[in-house]
Nucleic acid binder design. Structure first.
Lengths: 225, 225
DNA sequence: GTCAAACTTTTTGTATACAAGATTTCGATT
DNA sequence: AATCGAAATCTTGTATACAAAAAGTTTGAC
């Protein structure tokens, strides 16, 4: 029950239903979800653990959208984590996982050919999840998945850009080639560039950030109404 | 209050007062700490968020010590995170932070000269915290600190080994040199090797793991009393 | 003696009650 | 009219109450 509430709130937050710094009203939300404050507060704590809200003692739970520079920092870490996954995967990937990666690349090609953006998005997700698995380090994979999930709402912004899908596919192919060749340096570099927000991607991301409703409020949380 | 309880439980867990898989009894602990179950359960959730306990629905909170292979995986990630910090720091470190890193290396030298293990441990902590800061990426620094803290009880095992302190100091010097030279590749490689558990360090760690009371129970959590 | 089903006891999860801290309102003062 | 402070109101944090699920125990059949 507490987990259902967390799920619902998480959805509401990442779809921008709350402004940055907005306080989550325990009584109002308890009414809304037909639960008492107890499971609601549990949900708040879970959201705080994943960084979606900030808990200020005796003040309440405040939703926290990342500032642009924080988003860039998170993407930088994501790029490095995936680069590490790639480097390790080049040495450790099992034939089974490699085959599944190959399959997603083929599915991605099909999606591009069909102009199926949603399909591409889905297969792209699989591709990255498999890279994490391929690292052979479950802890690394779990950390990568955690950050990947956290960045999901912002990644959505990115992939709609024209031509991005095709470029992404090309990079997937290069990554696959590197993994097949056991080329750890190549896999690392290609994955880093694939995920990193730089060059044109930086500007695209900035543009969509400014349009989104997941923008941070420049005022510090503690001083807001 | 909930946070005090979390603090206390965290201490008890990392000092091995509970066996792996042991259930944390809400009523008993509520009595022990003179609090009600409400803040206690909050503490459980926080501990679950940092991976120290596992929450099984309708079953309770079970302490979770990492298996040896999980510990190795965590150290591998730590090594990679610090390597990234080092690479970025070589390009981004500010003169102020660099000066403070230099100071810790000098303090480490003094500690080695005096045979002051505790002093070395303290300065070593500062050194690594500063490396995180030097990365210029606050999110990366926060993630590195989180994992660093999680590994603290296991790192304690490591540094007592004879000769380790001197080798560690030598590596600190090399890292500092690389940072001063703006040598990102050097800083990255040196830091990775410094933190990585490999060669003799692997065997040392395994030996102390086996002796510690933070060992995992081979039986899966769900099947334990 | 073993197994299983029914019953009893614990234990968890949620709701509610209440006290202490934060916020707002409103009036008095400059 | 603006500002400060006290009273009133709201909100959070903790304790307690209660229902439902899990664990443990007893009883009965074979």
């Amino acid at each position: 029950m507490a987990d259902d509430v967390r799920e619902a709130l998480e959805q509401m937050i990442v779809t921008g239903e709350f402004a940055d710094g907005e306080r989550l009203d325990e009584n109002r939300l308890a009414d809304r979800f037909h639960v008492s404050r107890t499971p609601l507060r549990e949900a708040f704590q879970m959201l705080a653990a994943s960084g979606l809200v900030e808990l200020l003692p005796r003040r309440g739970a405040f939703v926290r959208h990342p500032a642009f520079h924080e988003m860039v920092e998170m993407f930088e870490v994501m790029a490095e984590l995936e680069a590490v996954c790639g480097r390790l995967a080049a040495r450790r990937v099992t034939p089974e996982v490699l085959a599944r990666i190959r399959a997603t690349v083929i599915a991605c090609e099909a999606a591009v050919a069909a102009g199926d953006t949603d399909g591409y998005y889905r297969e792209n997700e699989h591709f990255h999840q498999l890279i994490y698995t391929a690292s052979g380090n479950d802890f690394l994979a779990a950390e990568a998945r955690r950050l990947h999930k956290r960045l999901q709402p912002f990644r959505r912004m990115q992939l709609r850009v024209r031509g991005r899908m095709l470029q992404s596919l090309t990079e997937h192919r290069q990554i696959l080639t590197a993994l097949e060749a056991g080329d750890s340096t190549g896999a690392e570099a290609t994955l880093r560039d694939h995920v990193a927000v730089q060059g044109a991607k930086f500007n695209d991301l900035m543009a969509s950030y400014k349009q989104s409703n997941l923008r941070a409020n420049p005022q510090p949380v503690a001083l807001r109404g």
